[in-house]
Design a protein around this nucleic acid. Sequence first.
DNA 1: CTGAAAGCGCTTACAG
DNA 2: CTGAAAGCGCTTACAG
Lengths: 337, 337
Amino acid sequence: MKDKKRSRVTLQQVAEHAGVSRATASLIVRGSSKISEKTRKKVLESMRELGYVYDRVAANLRSQRSSTVGLIITDIANPFFSELLIGVHQELEKEGYTVLLGTTFDSDAKQDRLLSTMLEHRVGGVILCPVSDSSKETIDRIKQWDIPIIHAVRELSEVNCDYVGIDYKIGAQMAVGHLIRKGHRRIAFLGGSSESSAWQERKRGYCTALKQAGLDIDESLFIENAVTREGGKASLQQALRHSNPPTAAFCFNDLVAFGVMQGIKDMGLTPGKDMAVVGFDDVQEASISTPSLTTVSSFARLIGQHAADLLHQRIVNINRERQRIILQPELVVRGSS
Amino acid sequence: MKDKKRSRVTLQQVAEHAGVSRATASLIVRGSSKISEKTRKKVLESMRELGYVYDRVAANLRSQRSSTVGLIITDIANPFFSELLIGVHQELEKEGYTVLLGTTFDSDAKQDRLLSTMLEHRVGGVILCPVSDSSKETIDRIKQWDIPIIHAVRELSEVNCDYVGIDYKIGAQMAVGHLIRKGHRRIAFLGGSSESSAWQERKRGYCTALKQAGLDIDESLFIENAVTREGGKASLQQALRHSNPPTAAFCFNDLVAFGVMQGIKDMGLTPGKDMAVVGFDDVQEASISTPSLTTVSSFARLIGQHAADLLHQRIVNINRERQRIILQPELVVRGSS
DNA sequence: CTGAAAGCGCTTACAG
DNA sequence: CTGAAAGCGCTTACAG
């Protein structure tokens, strides 16, 4: 038996209780300064007595505004995204937004559904970390999208949007350059999907580093796989079946690197000794793993803050110039290389 | 210059375009079966042509329903909560809910604000992981709360709510019992706040284990601190200043344990050798840290799934009997003890 | 299936 | 400051 819920106290009822008009009560909840302190107090008192709760949904509907914002990430289990999420929340809460969160797990279909859901909920804008192989349909949809959207972490090259990410190319170049200086000549690039801009840019950095050292590029050392621990482990196993196996691994990110290190250990070998491993992101566990992980810091929280800030700016002024923020990565050398 | 946005296509416009009544169009978006296949197709075609987007906010306002649900956690940077979040999302998306996420960082004021925000956004219900020292005001508020609320992870004993958590007492008892069997007699309990039910239950388990072994309890070995790596490190340092220092540490959770292990390393000692460390939660990094961490598995994802399920049930039937789900923990022995 | 009306809880705009 | 009216985009209920 579904009970009819005790219905909400309305602004109307508050106004009646306080003996003012609905318009006045409305001005007060919105913090207008045009109301005398005396009436303001009286009305606020009535609200407290009646247990009034402002109905932001109704207000937004009427005024065609929005107080929510969507955040779509690919994997909440990746600490990189937890950090990014914290950054986004920090910034947006300041501005009074509430965040609708969605996770795609890198599925295009899921991403599509989430974009729809966000629209249906009238979000004021969306921060999107696109899945690596976004379909043409999705991209077309985003192009026609008429509410503010900011891309973060990965960029869809066909779409002209605000974007914030880091310079993956330079990061990869630093990581691979480091391995070369350590004497490695056969360096695998493990994990990730070649569909994503983040992968392509890392590859460019990888290639630049090899060219600068006068080394040839062996494409058979690029082994794509899921961006997870499991994917890392699997890609390592594949790398070791190579007729001329690599002596070092540059991993798509730290999560992949942890899987790779686990795989190395599983074979009775020692990461950092029998095989060098470098990650990407510098998540917190990178410093506490065994061995500690050499990696490239990608400032997830900062990316989140910037994305939130760009979104807010875009909501305030839909026509402002397009902005791209590219943060500079840093190499953190530890025990695994 | 704020541009007036291109306004939404309304159901009215769709109806006109398809040559049907608004009522019919409304029935179709809601998936009624009372409409002939022919008209249904025609209307869906019009929607596609016009780029119609269902306005769930308006629909919810009119029908006094809600398609959102609030989730309030204490710390998204803790992998335990990331896992819980995944569980919640998995369950609730099946039912078509969208999740509003809030993080309290264990601040009562923040929690209070988040509860208000959720109410103002007309959520259909809330899953709350209460902060450890929720104020009396907050508790009173929750008691009078008239929308479904599920408590997870921590329980406010004064509030009669659905709850899902694990049996912390048994978990702690297993962990401490393990340390005793390893020969430890002075075991510190590090991190967490004695205000929280999760802490109190762990303490009870700790005490039971000692009593069973015929050992005395030394309250000076209970060292409270923040539930973070930093808090863990600080509590370890305090423990080592003890005139009769402990030889083992039972940590409030894995995060604290990582900090404790870091602290041990910083002193030039080796965790697992010079001092045994046991955590709680079994987050993913527990298996890859150095040394790998002995810990108690607390099934975060499962907790999230159960909480979501309880909430859904409660929304469907506000009067159903109160339910408490207590999962049984498991001890995972690794290198740190 | 249609059509006209009312209403969810708010904001807006305007005359007083 | 008030009061009356209209409207945001839907759903509901009802007579036909």
